[in-house]
């Protein structure tokens, strides 16, 4: 019989991120599919609120590794906490959201446990009585479903790929697992945020706006209009609260001494060597045949694109609607109407 543990961590305010509820939902479904039970383990400074938030999930037990040592995400302490929780639960399968905090540490924990890990999984199903995990290889280019005999099996779930379990808060009883915080030579000193006006990455946004290198290239009148491109893009982000993604070629331009959009960095890059954000909608503005051939597109549910080339192979078959138009002109009009 599999012993399933769902690992969660609190946010800085003691709450749980929505990806935590996605993971709990996955654990609950998996347990049901295997006719088994599941437990929850929470890491954080103080887990009471978080435990109450998932108390109604039906876990057989809620374990906690809590205290000031676990307030900040840090490899040494988080690894010790997760290792202790997995051992306390006697877990054969560990599910966790693939947040930056857990992504930093769970493979290491797997090594300590002598297990195997699947990261950034998008689904778990039970086939022939065995759990089977869907995950990507070669970035988002090859899709697999696999099963394996080794245990413990740690599986991190890509945030946004599974439904959130809706729960009413209840009162939870928590079993504290004593974790001796290891001596660490690392101190987390803070969070560095980009300046507020450049805050163009919004993981929770409804819309991803993808800018291709075409914005910086020569336009129909024979000149490039980077200042205007900047204005149009920022205005649109401001009006819609969209998150900003860029093609690699646009993000790379800084290395070539070209004048580029100053708010754009490699953090915005999506696709092969960039991020693969998940948003309900995506609008790609390719511009003048300079298609952002972004694989990051893959995790966008509704997709539309603006391109001057109706035959563009990166839009055809990949986007729901392709507007054949000059992006400058069209986006100006869109902004006017959003006004």
């Amino acid at each position: 019989m599999e012993k399933i543990l769902c690992l969660l961590h609190t946010e800085s305010d003691g709450s749980l991120h929505k990806s935590a509820f996605e993971a709990v939902g996955a654990a609950k479904d998996l347990a049901a599919g295997l006719s088994s039970q599941f437990a929850i383990g929470i890491v954080g400074e103080s887990v009471a609120n978080a435990a109450n938030a998932v108390a109604g999930a039906g876990a057989e037990k809620i374990y906690a590794a809590q205290g000031a040592d676990f307030a900040q995400p840090k490899y040494a302490t988080d690894a010790a906490a997760c290792e202790a929780l997995a051992k306390a639960a006697g877990a054969t399968i560990v599910l966790a959201p693939a947040t930056s905090r857990f992504s930093r540490v769970l493979a290491g924990v797997t090594a300590r446990l002598g297990g195997r890990i699947e990261t950034n999984a998008t689904a778990i199903a039970v086939t022939n009585g065995k759990p089977a995990v869907s995950r990507w290889y070669y970035r988002q280019r090859i899709e697999t479903t696999l099963s394996r005999p080794q245990r413990p099996w740690v599986i991190t779930l890509s945030p946004g790929s599974l439904p959130e379990l809706q729960l009413a808060p209840a009162s939870a009883s928590v079993e504290n697992v004593a974790v001796a915080a290891p001596a660490s030579r690392t101190q987390v000193t803070g969070i560095q945020s980009p300046p507020a006006d450049a805050q163009t990455i919004r993981p929770d946004a409804q819309l991803l706006f993808v800018a291709g290198a075409g914005w910086t290239k020569q336009q129909a009148d024979g000149a490039s209009h980077i200042d205007e491109a900047e204005k149009i893009i920022l205005q649109f982000l401001h009006q819609t609260g969209a998150s900003l993604g860029s093609s690699k070629s646009l993000a790379d331009m800084s290395g070539e001494g070209q004048k580029i959009l100053p708010f754009m960095s490699h953090l915005n890059q999506i696709g092969q060597t960039g991020a693969s954000p998940r948003h309900p909608k995506g609008l790609a503005t390719c511009c003048h045949g300079e298609e952002p051939h972004v694989v990051g597109w893959r995790f966008i549910s509704e997709r539309r694109a603006v391109n001057t080339n109706p035959g563009c192979g990166w839009a055809q078959g990949k986007t729901d609607v392709l507007y054949v138009a000059d992006a400058f002109e069209l986006m100006r009009k869109v902004e006017e109407m959003l006004g």
Binding site: T127, E143, R303, D320, V321, L322
Partner: peptide, 16 residues
């Protein structure tokens, strides 16, 4: 169980 390329060719409506 399966190893495949993502099958997600969409019907693209072209507006021009």
């Amino acid at each position: 169980v399966t190893v495949q390329l993502p099958q997600q060719r969409r019907d693209t409506r072209i507006v021009k």
